[in-house]
Design a protein around this nucleic acid. Structure first.
Lengths: 107, 107
DNA sequence: TAATATTATCGTAATATTGCAATATAATTT
DNA sequence: AAATTATATTGCAATATTACGATAATATTA
């Protein structure tokens, strides 16, 4: 025991939970907010700004990348991580739908 | 090591992450969806519907309760968990703000 | 009050996450 | 090519989560 029984739930439920999991760490919230404020993002900046070690930042970035929220392009010498606008809006829509489809006609 | 360094992040970042953490499990998504569809909710129903053991359901409900998303009232003999409408809308607003405040002028 | 039904807590095992030092890889510059 | 810089991977220790059986607590009914 100890493992989530994902097979018991619908694809939609699992997908929303998976995305929420990525947002479920303040460092990743901070990383996303920081990237969105920059014209360019270099991972090394994040180490200074966020204040966690470089491997830790790299791992967090990887989690964010896994759900398609980042696109990276090489620009000159540095790798540049950017918000994947299309995916971002998709996830925004998922959360919006989840929050909107609730009704309160109980109690 | 191993513990999240929450003190390094802002209150807003920590709060959003905390809420996301509650949504980061498909069982809790399923529980919230189910409660919202019912006129009345009895925990014992959830055990059948979700398919996890009663103590597990109880624990999940507790996580959801911790962030103020449920209000419970006694109605006849059974405890009735309901969505806390006000809190729900608060969280909806938090996520909406987070998703909206991002800009994409990078890359 | 005793029996029944419902929900919560405890204890524990399995699994997952977090964080970093050490190291490896990749790209750029000298 | 060697040195430098930036990012990724590995390995490991600490902590957190998930799940459930056993049991306790609470409320309802007979």
């Amino acid at each position: 025991m100890g493992a989530s029984k994902t097979h018991m739930f619908s694809l939609t439920q699992n997908e929303l939970a998976q995305v929420a999991k990525v947002l479920a760490h303040p460092a990743r919230i901070a990383i996303l907010e920081y990237i969105s404020r920059q014209e360019n993002c270099i991972c090394n900046d994040l180490v200074d700004v966020i204040g966690l070690a470089q491997p830790t930042i790299s791992q967090h970035l990887n989690e964010i990348k896994k759900i398609g929220l980042l696109k990276g392009t090489f620009e000159g010498k540095n790798l540049c991580y950017c918000i994947n606008e299309k995916r971002w809006e998709e996830l925004q829509h998922s959360f919006h739908t989840f929050f909107t489809n609730i009704n309160y006609n109980c109690c």
